[in-house]
Design a protein around this nucleic acid. Sequence first.
DNA 1: GATGAATGAGACTTCATTCAT
DNA 2: CATGAATGAAGTCTCATTCAT
Lengths: 216, 216, 216, 216
Amino acid sequence: MGRGIDIAMKKRPSQRRAQVTVEAMVTAAAELLSSLPYDSVTTNRIAERAGVGIGSLYQYFPNKEAIVARVVTGWVEAMVEEVTARLAASTQLEVREAALAMVSALFEVIDRHRVKVKLILEVIPFATQIPAVAMLPQQLVLIAAQTHASVRDRLNFPRPEAASYVLMVMSRASIIDAVLHCPKHLDRRDVELTISDFIARIMLGNETAATARPQN
Amino acid sequence: MGRGIDIAMKKRPSQRRAQVTVEAMVTAAAELLSSLPYDSVTTNRIAERAGVGIGSLYQYFPNKEAIVARVVTGWVEAMVEEVTARLAASTQLEVREAALAMVSALFEVIDRHRVKVKLILEVIPFATQIPAVAMLPQQLVLIAAQTHASVRDRLNFPRPEAASYVLMVMSRASIIDAVLHCPKHLDRRDVELTISDFIARIMLGNETAATARPQN
Amino acid sequence: MGRGIDIAMKKRPSQRRAQVTVEAMVTAAAELLSSLPYDSVTTNRIAERAGVGIGSLYQYFPNKEAIVARVVTGWVEAMVEEVTARLAASTQLEVREAALAMVSALFEVIDRHRVKVKLILEVIPFATQIPAVAMLPQQLVLIAAQTHASVRDRLNFPRPEAASYVLMVMSRASIIDAVLHCPKHLDRRDVELTISDFIARIMLGNETAATARPQN
Amino acid sequence: MGRGIDIAMKKRPSQRRAQVTVEAMVTAAAELLSSLPYDSVTTNRIAERAGVGIGSLYQYFPNKEAIVARVVTGWVEAMVEEVTARLAASTQLEVREAALAMVSALFEVIDRHRVKVKLILEVIPFATQIPAVAMLPQQLVLIAAQTHASVRDRLNFPRPEAASYVLMVMSRASIIDAVLHCPKHLDRRDVELTISDFIARIMLGNETAATARPQN
DNA sequence: GATGAATGAGACTTCATTCAT
DNA sequence: CATGAATGAAGTCTCATTCAT
């Protein structure tokens, strides 16, 4: 605690030209991160690729972590936006349909960005200290709850806070694992259906459970 | 593909003295990994703390990754053993009880080794390439299936392979996430109960689901 | 075959300051090579003597071989130039005089640079892979042929290609050996005269040989 | 001067068993030298290949150079013997035939051992300090002179010592260069004939030269 | 602001050699 | 005599970061 990574930008680019420069650096970093082993992504290479002096990079970012964090933040925001957009189209569904919609949305988006997701989850050492990443879980809960009223309504479990947390973690983790590490012998669509089925069971099971086993 | 990390030991310590040395090095590495940032764990420091010449380290391990892998392997094996032992005591349970037993076992063991788990999952860059780590998921399925007959019996889902895979991923991921990243405002016991409750729902839901919606 | 030494410079020093730095490094390397056992010439020592950080060296040269190659290239070019200059002064000579002129020129230049020649021929392990060194034989043939028309005219031996190759090798090798390994009891001038005498014999012998023994 | 390589054996193996051991080490070293880059031939590898503890190696050889020197010495002696044997068969020849015989003999032997010759001449850094190597030139003169009376008779040049030295150097150097570095476009047999032709010219030219230009 | 030359601590790794067993 | 575990100095090379221009 307290010795986290220094991630803040040093200076906000005020002039128009400077903004372009910073954008070039971030883009270059993103491209390199997506195509080279993490340790090969050096600040010098980023600057070179951006067509910028290494000194300029350090004028806007205090260190290597900062620019990587900036890239990751962009990625996360974009992905969240994509998921949101995709779910916005399918409001007001039945529980099972809602679950499938959400699973499909996440599945599809994560799959499309699997390289980036892998980087964030398994490669970049300080990823969890990046705010956008750290806040992702809550973000997702929010999205789910906001978009699907039917889901929200079901979330009156005993221990409701824990329930929504666990539900989201289970969804997220199983989808990510399926995308990144799914055993080859399994059909992806099968997995997708299974996940959404299970989520539905959790939510639907609630009815029965809540009434049938009140003495739990 | 194919260019994995070279992890095999260079030479097997045949003499008693050598075994002691190797043990010292592995222990030192484990301690350092648990207490320093990963990049600060250098081979020189490992050797120094082991009270051994750096040359000795490289006589038994071809590189830094190899000794780290050895440490991690030891950790994983110990944890698997602990979980197994803990579950062995509670065979032949009802579904709900079986689920809770397993969740509790994993929860407790992972919690006790949370630093190591975090290292393996979030810090050590090549962790997934270590055999013991790569095989962990299947290991866990095996443990669960072997110990709890009642669980095994329930696993006749439609899409059974996908189901057992997803079930295990959900369990594992939610427990790990809960241990490592559980929001502070949540009570750990609540989360634990919720997880096992959800798992039970998935399995019990099967009965209803399987009969009520055959045309899925 | 194919896996030659990487010898190209990493970055061309564009600024004036950088050129000075590179020059200092090359000079330092040259001095060390001339005064220490080859294995004692380390990149660190080169940088230290050049009054430069080791990092600077690796900014311009990809590895140790590259800077050594650069030094050797400089030496070879200088020597070739010296020989050329010396021979340019003595064109249009009789065969015997031409031979002596060339032998003397090579003898003198090689003798003056004997330490460097020894390094190139007997010490630096990858010397033959340095372009300037590899091309030296042809260079010398060229010099000889271009400067001395009388020599060129004589080169119509049977098997002319083999002849010019062997003639050059004999000249070069005997001169170098004489400079580097001449037994102490021999007078250097005697050796020099003998070599040029022999070369003349080879060329003059041609006349007789070609006419007197056509049935060879 | 004075700081030459320590090459002498530490201890002469007195027992029969020890002699076998030493032989194994030398053989192993020879094989490794012939098949690996020089820097990869380490004392540990030699011992391992010989099936001997590294300690044993250092009981008979004071250092790495010593065992390499021993290997090289064996090679040189064998080659000299081969050349001698081959020339012994062809005594009492005419000048031209004697020259061709000698050139052919050297050519053939050197070619058969080209890898070793290359090692001795271009790779092993301290080769010239090995007695057997240092004495090679004189050895060869001796061989030539002893075996071919006709050659010896011709060696009454002005400056006879220089002459015999230069003649031998030219022969040796041109043959070695031809074997090791002969341009691909040249026919080896052509080169061989040319060399012996040139040598004959040198020796035959003597007659004329000695009488025709007494005022040299 | 922008540049890029310069830095240098420090990482990994090798290998000839010693010496306790 | 033989062993092989242990040594550690020293080498090559990287890369985040600074600062004079």
